[in-house]
């Protein structure tokens, strides 16, 4: 389980960083999206990973604190998702505005001279 999550985070973050360094605005925004997925998974994993655990309680058994998944990382990740979603949407609008105003989708607003 740990290995799968770690690999997923690594691949997402790696692709995200690579895309972020590309010169086209669309690649940058996808890179940011992938990076934020990686970070969200990472936050989620700080609460500890368990397979086959009960959601909250097992029927008929008295619940103890040890059975719960830690709710704080889940709350954090939820907040992070919402904020990341909103800011990415905002960036998308700016990206379109930049495309319209400068006539190119290069991040610097002009093509590099050959």
């Amino acid at each position: 389980m740990e290995l799968v999550v770690a690999l997923a985070i690594g691949i997402l973050a790696g692709s995200g960083v690579w895309l972020l360094l590309r010169p086209r605005t669309f690649q940058v925004i996808i890179g940011l999206a992938l990076l934020s997925y990686a970070v969200n998974l990472f936050i989620f994993s700080t609460g500890g990973l368990r397979t086959g655990a009960d959601a909250i309680l097992r029927q008929g058994a008295a619940g103890t604190l040890a059975d719960f998944a830690d709710p704080v990382p889940q709350a954090l990740v939820l907040t992070a998702i919402v904020i990341g979603f909103a800011t990415t949407a905002l960036l998308l609008v700016v990206l379109l505005a930049a495309r319209g105003l400068t006539g190119t989708d290069h991040v610097d607003g002009r093509e590099r001279e050959q």
């Binding site: 972020l20 605005t25 940058v28 940011l32 990076l35 934020s36 970070v39 990472f42 936050i43 954090l76 992070a80 904020i83 990341g84 800011t87 990415t88 905002l90 960036l91 700016v94 990206l95 505005a97 930049a98 105003l101 400068t102 991040v107 610097d108 607003g109």
Partner: peptide
């Protein structure tokens, strides 16, 4: 818009670092 695009991307990246740290 050109400067704003850079500003937003850099700050989004910084926010991701913030989240990792937290």
């Amino acid at each position: 818009v050109r400067a704003g695009l850079h500003y937003i991307v850099i700050n989004l990246l910084a926010s991701l670092l913030f989240l990792i740290g937290v």
